[in-house]
Simulated assay, not measured.
Amino acid sequence: MARSALVTGGAQGLGAAIVRALHAQGFKVAIGDVDFEHASALADDLGASDGSTLPLRLDVREQGDFEAALAAMVARWGSAEVLVNNAVVTEAKPVLAIGPAEFDAVMRVNVGGVFIGSQVFGRAFKAAGYGRIVNIASLAGQNGGTATGAHYAASKGAIITLTKVFARDLAADGVTVNAIAPGPLDVPSVHRLVPKERLAALVESIPVRRLGDPAYVAELVCLLASERSAFTTGATWDVNGGLFMR
């Protein structure tokens, strides 16, 4: 039976890579994003005509949007089994320059979106006796790196903790909850945040001497979204080229 998955922030960048990988693995994929135009374009590119993709306008700050997304997936496919919490905002800024409103705005999307989405879908998964939640954290949430902003790093650390909380509470109900912590990837946001003159030094600092391919993360999402992850929960998986070893 083909499983169905929602990917938040799925219209572009890493989210789009995850959508493509899940779809290639036979998942039916709902593409949730505030950018409905790009979500629709991706759905069309993957073959929306066969009903295997579903673009959705989704603001992860809104519980109602998650509830509507779940209802739309059930209406289209009869069920929903996978949630990939990928939506994120990033604003590189020195810690002493971040105001309270900006800090709250980043946390509301990055952490609040994971919390709300995991609650809404977690309840449905618990009732069904099966589900997979995959959270996209970050190396910054593990080592306190602030190149992407202290509020971003704090939010990603919080996601790792939320992963453990939801995993513990849902483990007996057939639901696994795991996180992936990517290091620097070859995606537009990294090239936007890292000045060209610093990019070479960043690559040199990575033991494997290259930026990560988003496909590495996407392939791991596919594994954690599958039945094969039944005995793995509450874990944070490192995809960082050796920048952080433990």
Score class of each variant (00 low, 15 high):
residue 40 S to F: 04
residue 42 L to I: 08
residue 42 L to E: 02
residue 42 L to F: 07
residue 43 A to H: 03
residue 45 D to H: 08
residue 46 L to M: 11
residue 47 G to I: 11
residue 48 A to M: 12
residue 49 S to R: 14
residue 49 S to Y: 05
residue 49 S to D: 14
residue 50 D to Q: 05
residue 50 D to S: 12
residue 51 G to I: 10
residue 53 T to S: 08
residue 54 L to P: 03
residue 55 P to W: 01
residue 55 P to V: 05
residue 55 P to A: 08
residue 56 L to I: 15
residue 57 R to C: 06
residue 57 R to M: 12
residue 58 L to Y: 11
residue 58 L to W: 11
residue 59 D to W: 10
residue 60 V to P: 00
residue 60 V to K: 04
residue 60 V to E: 03
residue 62 E to D: 15
residue 64 G to E: 14
residue 64 G to N: 13
residue 65 D to T: 05
residue 65 D to H: 14
residue 66 F to C: 05
residue 67 E to Y: 00
residue 67 E to A: 03
residue 68 A to D: 11
residue 69 A to G: 03
residue 69 A to F: 03
residue 71 A to I: 00
residue 73 M to S: 02
residue 73 M to E: 02
residue 74 V to N: 07
residue 74 V to C: 02
residue 75 A to T: 14
residue 76 R to F: 00
residue 76 R to Y: 02
residue 77 W to I: 10
residue 77 W to T: 06
residue 78 G to L: 14
residue 79 S to P: 02
residue 79 S to R: 15
residue 79 S to V: 02
residue 79 S to E: 15
residue 80 A to I: 09
residue 81 E to F: 03
residue 81 E to Y: 06
residue 82 V to W: 08
residue 85 N to E: 04
residue 85 N to D: 06
residue 86 N to G: 02
residue 86 N to K: 10
residue 86 N to W: 01
residue 87 A to D: 00
residue 88 V to F: 07
residue 94 P to T: 12
residue 94 P to K: 05
residue 94 P to F: 11
residue 94 P to C: 13
residue 95 V to M: 14
residue 97 A to V: 08
